[in-house]
């Protein structure tokens, strides 16, 4: 579904992405991890067209994304910090976005997160008055609203309470089962463990690990993603040589 070819991006003198190559397909749930400043958000923003890469090409469903914005019709995005226009009401936000997305009929909306998070009760509140977690809920509900085939979640669970957290995880797993592609970044690896089946590790703008989670677990003999990743990175080169 997404093919990233040789993407590079520089901010000033800093090389944020360095010749990144990735192929993602439906049914994959990618855990995109890496230290702070490793280029995770920049990579995501390049896919979304918010950041324009200096080099390389990104194809979404075999279509070069630089050719037009229509590819974003199948992408749902939940940003890292959900920032919205302060004075706009939650209800207004939803109706505005629905107005923009006329391509999706009213009866096709996916309202499960909208209902589960109780967003109807927030409709009259202005977005500036919502707490960080509530904004995340709104943002998650919006990301899934138009039944996207590709869902990109940037630090989705950071501000969510435990119940909302498990609702979101459930939703992610459901979407994966429906053959959607999900890309999630997080520093909370426990959360990723429950939602993802593939790990991509970025460091200094380069991919150092791109494997099925099952494979990593088998090679390292660890059950915990945190330990898996550390062990795999230490022994990764050796393990690859053996295969």
């Amino acid at each position: 579904m997404i093919s990233i070819q040789n993407i590079s991006k520089k901010y000033g003198a800093q090389q944020v992405l360095n010749k990144v190559n990735l192929e993602f397909s439906g049914g994959q749930s990618i855990a995109l991890i890496g230290p702070n400043g490793s280029g995770k958000t920049t990579l995501i923003k390049s896919i979304l067209g918010l950041v324009l890469a200096d080099q390389g090409q990104i194809n979404v469903q075999n279509q070069d994304i630089s050719l037009g914005p229509d590819y974003r019709k199948i992408i749902g995005y939940m940003p890292q910090l959900s920032k919205f226009p302060e004075q706009m009401k939650v209800g207004q936000l939803f109706s505005l976005i629905k107005k923009i997305r006329r391509d999706i009929a009213q009866n096709e909306y996916d309202l499960s997160l909208y209902n589960d998070f109780g967003i109807a009760k927030m409709e009259g509140k202005s977005l500036g008055a919502l707490s960080g977690g509530m904004k995340q809920q709104v943002s998650a509900a919006l990301a899934f609203l138009f039944r996207p085939k590709i869902i990109i979640l940037d630090e989705p669970t950071a501000g969510l309470d435990p119940i909302s957290n498990s609702i979101l995880k459930h939703k992610v797993n459901e979407a994966r089962a429906q053959n959607c592609l999900l890309i999630t970044t997080s520093h909370i690896l426990n959360d990723l463990e429950e939602m993802c089946n593939h790990v991509v590790y970025l460091m200094d703008g380069k991919i150092v690990l791109n494997e099925e989670m099952k494979f990593i677990a088998e090679t390292t003999g660890e059950a915990n993603l945190n330990k898996m990743v550390i062990k795999f990175l230490q022994t990764g080169k050796i393990a690859k040589c053996k295969i």
Binding site: G68, P69, I75, P79, P85
Partner: peptide, 17 residues
């Protein structure tokens, strides 16, 4: 400047810049 977030929200929709 105040609508920076709003602009970002629009940018991730299937709209032309």
């Amino acid at each position: 400047y105040n609508s920076a977030e709003f602009i970002q929200l629009l940018l991730i929709q299937p709209l032309k810049r």
